[in-house]
Design a protein around this nucleic acid. Structure first.
Lengths: 338, 338
DNA sequence: CTGAAAGCGCTAACAT
DNA sequence: ATGTTAGCGCTTTCAG
């Protein structure tokens, strides 16, 4: 494997000069530079980023700490789309991505900062982390630059990008109210997601604004899981047949509610309106296609990468960003005729 | 940041001893080891993998060269599931994954081996690479250990994991023939995928075995794209109304055919049977749900990682593996009544 | 069982 | 404009 030493020898200069020439410093004779570049091509040289990283104490690498990269969770490719967005900007900026996965079967006993310190990543992006995840604690305490996706926490080294989940949820519920629904239930996700209480909040606010009563017993926990949501919705709808619409905190759960409706013999949207959240791919293919709150997952990742890299390069801008969401009306909602 | 030097100082030993103690060598006094371990904990030490990689010339890192990690392609999350599988085994074995993306907007002028050499990855897994991709050439020539997904190429340092695509395709077509179909068309993908000619081959073989004529004009190119497939299928079916079944080289294209059937007013499966390939998530949610050839994408990745890591650790087993596929019968196929 | 010393490939003062 | 030297944090002979 060729090193700058080899180049130096062949080109008849010192390693310093080689290093400077190759890194585009100005204080190198143009002829020397050309010669060095030629030699390095002849010798098929590639720089050793490990060595460079060691001395510069900078690896041009971003760590990705994602949970939800496993067999089951592949269903909502939320993570994947975020990843694609991150990758897009990172590769534009010549940063590499290194994947840490928290879902290792033999549960990794390593701490968050160990993971990062070992690999000498310059910064980290966290996605899909639960609020009770020990890693989250560490982030705030550690001084490693970090961007959180969908968890609004801030410090000197921590930023986030997310959407306004209260607004998103209230938009969804307002849509239902606008269609004449008065008895609107909610299937929320588990409490370990930051967005859950916020979406609940949005649901409440929308009801309140229209002077509709909030009925706690109409809010069930679907754990962001299709099957759990189906079961919970089945119980709920059987018990309170007066419910004419359901707002779900995720599309996956909305899919579960759709199944519950089938098994209860209630046609969607004629006899039951359903709204999801996320606008995952499946949402437009389900039967009927889901009305939902759309998030631009790719952009979420893209912006997170942008923010992190700016941060790494010394920007002092505020490290927070809210992206817009959008109500996408498909065929799982219609006017209430009761 | 703590280094072994710090530990050595505090523990009152040499760096050599610290290194040996921490790496579990036998020739260290157990008391000394305990002391060193204690100190390293107190000092919150993490090893610097860059330094280690530099001296050992080994990074315990696997490069991932995937194409198809972009906005559009997110649809079939083939890549993502493969990735999950790779990640699973790699993290079990304490290897880290580094993501190279070939779809960078400013097209990366770096060569494959440059990418790998720079980052000093121990080995690489390639997925979603087209046969005319320049990277592929390089792989075979370079001496970097490498596993290909779905491209059967072998050398001392190159292995692959794939499925039997001829068999898969013929199984699909035989299913149609078994349902009484005689006029079976095929929507194939572009020729830049290794699997395309193989699936075509399987289609031909199945026809031949049952003494059905092969009609080249009934094979169209859907480019592995839903919309292209829809258009091509529409033309094909309009022109040859006698076709009663279509075999597609991917589910995504099958979805396109489903749309074509709708716009031509042909009910699936009553008036047209459709078979896909891959068994992507969408396949079970489409309307009607797709009959398809299922590939275990997660396992594809898992086995690729296994094979690569074994290779890296010196195994001399053959570096090739064929996984089984499975016919999944859903509701897009039925008996032919013509 | 332990330590001194060399060196992986690179960059960065500090000369010259 | 170029070379000398030191050193990033680690592993690994080689001696003791």
């Amino acid at each position: 494997m060729t090193t700058i030493k080899d180049i130096a020898r062949v080109a008849g200069v010192s390693v310093t000069t080689v290093s400077r020439a190759l890194n585009g410093y100005g204080d190198v004779n143009e002829n020397t530079r050309q010669k060095i570049i030629q030699v390095s091509k002849d010798l098929n040289y590639s720089p050793n980023t490990l060595a460079r990283g060691l001395v510069m104490n900078k690896s041009r690498t971003i760590g990705l700490l994602v949970s939800g990269m496993n067999r089951q969770n592949a269903k909502d490719q939320f993570t994947f789309e975020v990843l694609s967005g991150i990758n897009e900007y990172a590769s534009e900026q010549d940063y590499d991505l290194i994947l840490f996965s928290t879902n290792s079967t033999k549960q990794r006993e390593k701490t968050y900062s160990q993971l990062c310190k070992e690999r000498r990543v310059d910064g980290v992006i966290l996605s899909g982390i639960k609020t009770d995840d020990p890693y989250l604690q560490e982030v705030v305490e550690s001084d490693i630059p970090c961007i959180l996706i969908d968890i609004p926490m801030k410090s000197d080294t921590v930023g986030y990008v997310t959407t306004d989940n209260v607004l998103g949820a209230s938009t969804a519920v307002n849509h239902l109210i606008g269609l004449g629904h008065r008895n609107i239930a909610m299937v929320n996700g588990h409490d370990q997601a930051f967005v859950s209480p916020q979406r609940l909040q949005g649901y409440k606010e929308a009801l309140e604004t229209r002077h509709l009563p909030f009925r706690p017993e109409w809010v069930v926990n679907g754990a962001y899981d299709e099957e759990t949501a189906r079961q919970e919705a089945e119980k709920l709808l059987a018990r309170y047949p007066e419910i004419t619409a359901v707002f779900c905190a995720s599309d996956l759960m909305a899919l579960g509610v759709l199944k519950a409706a089938v098994s209860l013999g209630r046609r969607v949207p004629e006899q039951l309106s359903v709204v999801g959240y996320d606008d995952i791919l499946l949402a437009s293919y389900s039967n009927p296609p889901l009305t939902t709150i759309s998030q631009n997952k790719f952009q979420l990742g893209y912006e997170a990468a942008t923010m992190l890299i700016h941060m790494l390069e010394g920007s002092r801008e505020p490290h927070e960003m809210y992206l817009d969401t959008q109500l996408v009306i498909r065929r799982s909602t219609s006017e209430n005729h009761n």
